[in-house]
């Protein structure tokens, strides 16, 4: 197992209260695996992605649980060691907002050099060569190295970010909504590039996060569904799509529109309302208020249990 997340909890501590964005989350990623994490915006999936780094810049705070990377507990690393030994080299990120993720006053080349320098001691010439190679792999010309962020188009920016994130050949890449800011054709290109880099072995495993399940369908081996800070269902992609167990998963799949495939609308429960306020402590099923199948049984704590070879947080999963 490459990554093991155990009972991880993290909160935003604000003057107006504590927001538990990640609540007791456990999952793992194997070498050679792509794990998808899906959920509505605000469900805590980005915070979860960020928490794996174990950095927790305020107001984010670690509440409990651990992250094991290749068996090493990240809790035992201090901030400096994390940055030097883990982030960027072993675990790397493709951020959600790639449009503004490049420092506007630094050339792509200089950003790449900064990343190299933070982790290793090699000559500038070698840095340049390696950066050029990585850009080439993403079908970006060498001239991009001398450009500033403003000189790049949206799709190019995203590919530059991917190149920078994979510059040191990380073992695990965490891509947080890598396509959300792009138009449809750029989206397709970026997904293809990610798949290619994975096949080429530039990185070994990946966690890809999206609010659109369809993006995960053709990429992820397994999918974890997140709702209100908790995982509600984890299983193999095919099975999740074929037979979702949790009502929220059903609703999410209902909102997936696939080209060339008609969706049977009437069978899908629509999803009115919004996720609960995470400042309040909810001891029963968090989906209760929005679930069309909710009844008295749901008014008690729901555990993530194994059923049919996957994990689901709904007692009534089978009868509905």
């Amino acid at each position: 197992m490459m990554l093991e997340v155990k009972d991880l909890s993290a909160s935003y501590v604000l003057p107006e209260g504590e927001i538990r964005a990640v609540d007791d989350v456990s999952f793992s990623v194997d070498e050679g695996e792509i794990l998808g994490i899906a959920g509505e915006s605000g469900c805590g999936k980005s915070t979860l992605a960020f928490s794996i780094s174990f950095l927790f810049p305020p107001p984010l705070r670690h509440v409990g649980g651990s992250v094991l990377f290749n068996g090493k507990d990240l809790k035992n690393f201090n901030d400096r060691e994390l940055r030097k030994e883990i982030l960027g080299t072993k675990i790397s990120y493709v951020p959600q907002s790639s449009m503004n993720s490049l420092n506007p006053t630094r050339r792509v080349k200089d950003i790449a050099f900064d990343i190299f320098r933070a982790h290793m001691d090699i000559s500038e010439k070698e840095m340049y060569e390696r950066a050029k190679e990585r850009l080439d792999l993403l079908s970006l010309p060498e001239s991009v190295l001398n450009m500033y962020s403003v000189e790049l188009s949206g799709g190019m920016k995203q590919r530059v970010v991917i190149a920078l994130s994979t510059l040191l050949g990380p073992e695990l890449l965490i891509a947080d909504e890598p396509t959300s800011a792009l138009d449809v054709s750029s989206q397709r290109i970026v997904l293809k590039e990610l798949k290619k880099l994975f096949k080429d072995g530039v990185f070994k495993s990946m966690i890809i996060i999206s609010h659109e399940l369809i993006i995960l369908k053709h990429l992820a081996h397994r999918i974890a569904i997140m709702y209100a800070g908790e995982l509600v269902e984890v299983g193999e992609t095919e099975r999740i799509f074929k037979e979702p167990l949790h009502p929220y998963t059903k609703a999410l799949i209902g909102s997936v529109l696939e080209p060339g495939k008609r969706v049977e609308r009437e069978k899908i429960p629509s999803l009115p309302g919004a996720p609960p306020d995470l400042r309040e402590k909810i001891t029963w099923c968090r989906f209760y208020d929005r679930c069309p199948f909710a009844d008295e049984k749901c008014k008690r704590k729901q555990e993530l249990v194994e059923r049919d070879g996957r994990l689901v947080r709904c007692e009534r999963g089978k009868d509905i």
Partner: peptide
Amino acid sequence: TDYVNYSRMLGLEDRKIVSYIFRNAML
């Protein structure tokens, strides 16, 4: 800004990030 967060995630040192911020805020 997003680039500050991204730099942190890529393991850049605080010293480097502060120099980014200082330069860009100074402009």
